[in-house]
Each structure stands twice: as structure tokens, then as C-alpha cells.
């Protein structure tokens, strides 16, 4: 049936092609440029278990996981952004602004400091688990504190101020823990505050990959309910939405998506803000479209940002959070000044 299909059938194929191109660029360029021949030979040797030369090893152990991390982390942060914007009914909400990322960073750095003391371990999943707990605490704090006690709605001002306070609290906690930490990665405050994909390895990207794919699939089941929520909580309930359950699911998905990425890559802001905004400009606000589109465009954007962060000061690196902020802040200010969204 043609009449009501949202136009732009070509959009997803085009975006996917852009994603693939960005991914391959991200494979080739960096501190060292790796040629197509080397990419092919290292994959061939990897499959046949032959000895690798230096560039091939760099490609397989550093470049390839990092390029995949760019796609996955971008996708998870952007999808987290769509979910939170739908839940708060507000386009300026972003995991970095409402405390999810900083809470996750705090949880993760707490693990780096106390990991040897506590008895509980879940193998490779302990770090993401610690980040999830931190992210959940901070997100729920902001969600509850920013709600107006009489109307039950979160105003933007309350949301931003609460987010600011919670962010400041958790990031100073991260700063404090960084001084105590022995782990060289956790000791770098810039790692947590500005993020970098340089820590990507096969273990971390498998964990991020599993979480991202599972959360995206689950969130698509709730896209319709999130659409109904655009009309307000009362109207959503009248359309059969179980509001409490929806809130719990959406916050949980967001925390998982954002905290797991943050645990391995640090706080990367503004991806969850910029990507849904770009997509709304392209093809409207239907959450089914936004969720899938954000996974792709988030991957594109973060891969590009990572490429820039690798190339700008090569062979040194810029933290990726600086690049995303340079893109994100103007978009954020534009959104704040826009009258369309009734703040």
C-alpha cells in the first residue's frame, strides 16, 4: 500500500553504503596507512593461521577492532539518545547530558580501583556490569529529580540542571578515583572525560556488539509505544501502553547501551544528540525509523570522528570526545534556540 509509506525508500541503502565506505576508510588510515593488499593478506593469513608481519598485526589487533568499535559505539550511543529523547519527550536529551555516561564512567573507574578488593567477578563482563550499575544510578536520579512534583513532567530547565549537577558529581568522583587507580588506562582522566576508541580490542567489541544488537532489537518492539508517548503520558495509556513498564524497559536499554560503551571507551558526548536530530531532518520523527537510522548514522558519525581524531595530529591522537563536541555543541545550541519544540 503506497499512500502512507514514509517516502525516501532510498535512504537506508544510501546510509548503509556511506557506513561501509566510512568503515573501510577507517580501516586504512591512522598513525600508519595500511594498504588494501595488506588488509587482504592479513585477513587471508588470519584465516589460515600464517605468520603475520608488523602491519598485518597492527591491522588485525588494533585497526580492525577499532574500526568495528567506531561503528558499534556510535550505534549504541545514538540509539540510547533516541530512546531517552522519546521517553523524556524532548529532543535535547542525550546520554552525556542526563548523567548516564558519567555514572557509567564512575562505576567503571570504581571497578578499576576496587576490582582487586571485591570478591565478585563475572569475567570480562565485570567491567561493563560495574558501568551499568553506575549508569543506572545516575540516570534514575536525574529522571526522578527532574520531575515536577505536582505535574509529573520534566521541564527542560530542570532536566539540564539536574543533569549538570549529577554529571559534575560523578565526573569529580571519576577524577578522584583516577588519582587512586593503578590501571594505566583508568588513571587518565582525559580517557574518561573525553573518550577514545584506542582501547578497542576483540573482547571489548564482542561485548559491545552483543549488547548493541540485542538492545536495538528489543527497542524496536517498543517503537510504536514511544511514538504514542509523543502525545503525552495520558494519551499513551489510552492507547494501551503500560507506562511504568515502558519506562523501566527504555531506561534499562539506554543504560545498557551507553554504560557498556562508556566502560570501554570513556564518555563520548553529543552522538546521541546529533544523530537523531539529523535523522529527524531527513525523514521525520517516527521512532521505528529513528532507531534503525540512528544505529547506522551513529556508526557513520563516530567512525568519521574517530578517523579525524586519528589523523588530525597524527601520529598523536585527539580524544574523540573533543571531535564529537565540536560537532555536537552547535547542534545543541541550535536545538535550544528553536521554538518548534515548546520547551
Amino acid at each position: 500500500m503506497g499512500k502512507f509509506n514514509n517516502k525516501n525508500k532510498a535512504l537506508f541503502p544510501i546510509l548503509t553504503i556511506v557506513l561501509v565506505v566510512t568503515f573501510f576508510l577507517s580501516l586504512r588510515f591512522g598513525a600508519i596507512t595500511i594498504s588494501w593488499a595488506e588488509i587482504q593478506s592479513s585477513i587471508a593469513k588470519w584465516i589460515s593461521n600464517n605468520d603475520l608481519n608488523l602491519n598485518e598485526r597492527i591491522f588485525l589487533q588494533i585497526r580492525l577492532p577499532r574500526a568495528i568499535a567506531g561503528v558499534l559505539v556510535g550505534a549504541s550511543l545514538a540509539v540510547g539518545g533516541v530512546l531517552m529523547q522519546a521517553l523524556f519527550r524532548n529532543p535535547i536529551v542525550e546520554p552525556g547530558l542526563i548523567g548516564t555516561s558519567s555514572g557509567a564512567a564512575f562505576g567503571a573507574s570504581l571497578y578499576f580501583v576496587l576490582g582487586s578488593v571485591i570478591k565478585f567477578h563475572a569475567g570480562e563482563w565485570t567491567l561493563p556490569l560495574a558501568a551499568c550499575i553506575g549508569g543506572a544510578v545516575s540516570t534514575v536520579c536525574v529522571f526522578l529529580l527532574s520531575k515536577n512534583r505536582t505535574t509529573g513532567k520534566s521541564s527542560v530547565v530542570a532536566l539540564l540542571l539536574t543533569g549538570l549537577a549529577i554529571n559534575a558529581l560523578f565526573l569529580s568522583g571519576v577524577g578522584f578515583l583516577s588519582y587512586l587507580a593503578r590501571d594505566p588506562q583508568a588513571r587518565s582522566i582525559t580517557f574518561w572525560n573525553l573518550g577514545t576508541l584506542s582501547g578497542a580490542n576483540w573482547i571489548s567489541i564482542s561485548i559491545i556488539g552483543v549488547v548493541t544488537v540485542v538492545c536495538l532489537i528489543i527497542s524496536l518492539r517498543y517503537a510504536k509505544q514511544l511514538n504514542a508517548l509523543m502525545m503525552g503520558e495520558d494519551e499513551a495509556v489510552l492507547l494501551g501502553v503500560n507506562l511504568k513498564w515502558l519506562q523501566i524497559i527504555v531506561i534499562t536499554l539506554n543504560v545498557l547501551l551507553v554504560a557498556v560503551s562508556t566502560a570501554f571507551m570513556g564518555v563520548i558526548s553529543f552522538v546521541g544528540l546529533v544523530v537523531p536530530h539529523l535523522l529527524r531532518l531527513m525523514n521525520g520523527s517516527d521512532n521505528r525509523f529513528l532507531l534503525i537510522g540512528s544505529a547506522i548514522v551513529g556508526g557513520i558519525l563516530l567512525s568519521m570522528a574517530d578517523l579525524v581524531s586519528r589523523l588530525l595530529l597524527a601520529p598523536a591522537e585527539l580524544p574523540i570526545g573533543i571531535v564529537t563536541s565540536l560537532v555536537g555543541v552547535p547542534v545543541f545550541i541550535t536545538l535550544l534556540r528553536k521554538k518548534q519544540y515548546y520547551f
Binding site: 502512507f4 519527550r89 524532548n90 529532543p91 510504536k224 509505544q225 511514538n227 504514542a228 508517548l229 509523543m230 502525545m231 503525552g232 495520558d234 494519551e235 489510552l238 492507547l239 494501551g240 529527524r280 521525520g284 520523527s285 517516527d286 518548534q340 519544540y341 515548546y342
Partner: peptide, 30 residues
């Protein structure tokens, strides 16, 4: 209940821009 009971309330704002048909289609969500 949502399949058999509908309520027309007053003054509904949308949090995000949607096309009119997308709003009307929400009636079919249940």
C-alpha cells in the same frame, strides 16, 4: 480496552513533529 474504547481529550501537544497521517495512524496502534 484500547481496542474498544477511545477518548478524545483536549489540547494535545506533540513532543516532536509528525505528519498528520502519522498521528491518525496512532489510533490503530492497539
Amino acid at each position: 480496552l484500547a481496542r474498544m474504547r477511545a477518548v478524545l481529550s483536549q489540547n494535545i501537544d506533540l513532543a516532536f513533529p509528525l505528519k498528520v497521517w502519522e498521528v491518525v495512524m496512532m489510533g490503530r496502534y492497539p
